[in-house]
Computed example of a mutant assay.
Amino acid sequence: MHITHTVVDSPYGPLTLVAADGVLSRLSMEDQRHRPPQETFGERADDGPFPEVIRQLRAYFAGELTRFELDLAMLGTPFQQRVWRELQRIPYGETRSYGELAEALGSPKASRAVGLANGRNPVGIIVPCHRVIGANGSLTGYGGGLDRKQRLLAFERGKPEDALF
């Protein structure tokens, strides 16, 4: 497997994009929980899938794109894969609770397992794990930090001023 990466700036800090055999497999943020070691990101390259990924990320951050259309190569268990597909069904600017995701997956008692899979999402922002909240509407865990989660949700709702503490 040929692994390459590039780093792009974003309003939420530098994003490291990683591709496996030319297909996006990871989007990592600075200070992200579960961030793999830098040496696993492969050689630096700005070609491959990166120009299209970068184009779509820029359009998203400009408020012009609400759904990513990218091939992804995310490694995970079958359950994690199901959770990550369900995350992609959460509409832009909306949220779902862990319990609602578990229910949508046909496993209403699996909200804790959904939370664990959500936390292992290798392609944050593009696979919108930031759109998952607690049952009471609280912002709970986010690998990129609760500040980023709050800012992303406020951005998607068109109220970036709500992201201020």
Score class of each variant (00 low, 15 high):
residue 28 S to K: 07
residue 72 L to N: 07
residue 93 G to D: 09
residue 57 L to G: 02
residue 50 F to V: 05
residue 57 L to R: 13
residue 103 E to C: 04
residue 29 M to G: 02
residue 34 H to Y: 15
residue 127 V to C: 12
residue 119 G to R: 14
residue 127 V to T: 09
residue 46 D to E: 13
residue 104 A to M: 01
residue 24 L to H: 09
residue 32 Q to N: 07
residue 96 R to Y: 09
residue 113 A to I: 00
residue 81 Q to H: 12
residue 94 E to Q: 09
residue 57 L to K: 10
residue 121 N to T: 15
residue 54 I to Q: 06
residue 35 R to W: 06
residue 84 W to C: 02
residue 130 H to T: 02
residue 48 G to T: 11
residue 92 Y to V: 04
residue 105 L to P: 10
residue 44 R to Q: 11
residue 89 R to A: 06
residue 83 V to G: 04
residue 140 T to A: 00
residue 140 T to D: 05
residue 42 G to Q: 06
residue 34 H to K: 12
residue 84 W to V: 06
residue 138 S to P: 01
residue 52 E to S: 11
residue 73 A to V: 03
residue 104 A to L: 06
residue 45 A to Q: 12
residue 47 D to S: 11
residue 89 R to F: 00
residue 105 L to A: 04
residue 23 V to F: 06
residue 107 S to W: 12
residue 54 I to W: 02
residue 82 R to F: 01
residue 82 R to V: 04
residue 72 L to S: 09
residue 38 Q to D: 13
residue 30 E to C: 04
residue 72 L to G: 04
residue 61 F to V: 12
residue 33 R to D: 12
residue 76 G to H: 12
residue 120 R to H: 15
residue 72 L to D: 05
residue 65 L to K: 14
residue 63 G to W: 14
residue 47 D to C: 01
residue 82 R to D: 14
residue 119 G to Y: 08
residue 140 T to L: 11
residue 27 L to Y: 08
residue 34 H to R: 11
residue 76 G to S: 04
residue 142 Y to G: 11
residue 24 L to K: 08
residue 107 S to V: 07
residue 74 M to N: 07
residue 73 A to S: 14
residue 33 R to Q: 14
